[in-house]
Amino acid sequence: MRPFGYAAPASLAEAVEALAAGGPGTRVLAGGTTLYDLMKLGVERPTAVVDIHHLAELSGFDTTGRDELVLGAGARLADLAEDPVLRRDCPALAESLAKAASQQLRNSATAGGSLLQRTRCGYFRGGPPYPCNKRRPGSGCAARDGTDRGHAVLGTSESCVAAYPGDWAVALLAFDARLDLLGPGGPRTIPLSALHREPGDTPQHEHTLADGELIVRIRVPVTATGRGSAFHKIRDRESFAFALASAAVAVRLGRRGTVQDCRIALGGLATRPWRAHEAERTLLGEELTERSALLAGETALAGARPGTHNGFKVALGIRTVADALRTAGRRAAS
């Protein structure tokens, strides 16, 4: 039998030690909803796992702080989705959680693990005979000339067009979340925007964590803009499906109804959680209207490079952004 090791460290510090001791084939096991799934498919073939799902020091979260929300990486998505402060002060975050997966999966999946959720590209998950640069670097990309209806239109490369599938990271990105990490080299903090990589020539490298480094907590700056936020998700059925397009948006309106602050992040459309700064700027100082919202959407999708079957995602993305802005604007005005 392929050797397979399991460690259940008693503390975060022990987990970091175990990861270092385990070497390159060792992976972190949290809720299991991505890693364990991909192990069953044979796409992930770790030689050992370090299980952190039981570590109490990771699972707490505090949304009562004046300056920032502090969310343990091991907090369960279902618990976060129910948090009354999140629902009131930053509905986009709560909605992104509530619309993710199913309640059963949200009871297992963790706040930190969810950020590292891997693509749903059928050629990546399907295994042989499909070439996949993400799964087997250098083998090619079956999606580029294949069934790419669900694939990305932003941030793609010759090597990979796989969409980042998650919702939670998209919403966090809109609110400038930061990540506390711990690894063999000690602790450090990075902005969430620096976590995910675009595929480029190395789509197998999806994030910037160092070997043996763990996400410990997520910190989200508290902003009044959060109240005027919304997470909009368009999918192939009304629930329990990955996004074809999603938008986490937030606006703060001034006295005359002009936009003072604006956040737009996209999901389902890009190879990584995608912040649309340019689109945000088009709204600053403007009134939020049907027209300005569409313009923001158009700006957000301006760089889109659709493939064979996903051309509709450009129009869909534009309208998803505009739709989400409509909801956010309503909330901001009330």
């Binding site: 096991l29 299991g32 909803t33 364990y36 299980d51 799902h53 059963q104 297992s108």
Partner: peptide
């Protein structure tokens, strides 16, 4: 066996989870 149907739902410490995506060690 892939977390996509819910037929294996059980309760783990009172919470519903998918038994297929729950390593038994959990």
């Amino acid at each position: 066996d892939q977390g996509q149907c819910g037929a294996c739902t059980v309760h783990l410490d009172g919470r519903r989870v998918l038994a297929c995506l729950t390593p038994a060690v959990h």
